[in-house]
């Protein structure tokens, strides 16, 4: 059995900021996780065009990359985002749900490296590219102990 059951972890939905944004689990496999951010008018960053603010997309990708680490190490560990870089490839289309997809590239004792993409329907036409690094303040990520 899995040590980290993502479906159960997300069964009650998201809380806090993620919950306010309406972020929810979309799909996942052993090597990747997808989360969904529904379009909402109160998340607009540019009222002239109706394009979403970048904050909610960063929140989506921060959550998605973090979950990809837990999925990979097959455990929930309280880690912190060390840094996150996002390239805005194009504006999200107003009205469309944004899907964030992330994978964990490598886990060391205390650092986990991830990358991800956000798209609004077509994964081949992404809206954002992301690289995020996580740090475990204490102990070691499962599977990396010596």
């Amino acid at each position: 059995m899995s040590g980290f059951d993502l479906d159960r972890f997300m069964a009650r939905g998201t809380w806090g900021h993620g919950g306010r944004l309406g972020i929810r689990l979309h799909a996942h496999e052993a090597t990747w996780v997808e989360m969904a951010l529904p379009y909402s008018e109160d998340l607009i960053g540019d009222p002239a065009s109706g394009v979403l603010a970048s904050g909610p997309i960063i929140a989506l990708m921060d959550m998605t990359t973090s979950l990809a680490v837990w999925r990979r190490v097959d455990a929930f560990v309280p880690h912190a985002t060390l840094d996150l870089r996002i390239d805005y490839l194009r504006p999200a289309t107003p009205g469309r749900t944004v899907i964030g997809r992330a994978e964990c590239l490598r886990v060391t004792r205390s650092i986990a490296f991830t990358r991800g993409l956000a798209h609004d329907g077509d994964p081949a036409d992404p809206i954002a590219n992301v690289a995020a690094t996580f740090m475990l303040p204490q102990g070691a990520y499962p599977g990396t102990e010596r």
Binding site: G18, I58, D62
Partner: peptide, 22 residues
């Protein structure tokens, strides 16, 4: 406030990022 919380008692990284962007 409740809408910017991540793990209990702490701000969510996305909320901090959003504030920095604004």
């Amino acid at each position: 406030h409740d809408d910017v919380v991540g793990r209990p008692g702490f701000l969510q990284g996305g909320a901090i990022s959003g504030l920095l962007e604004v």
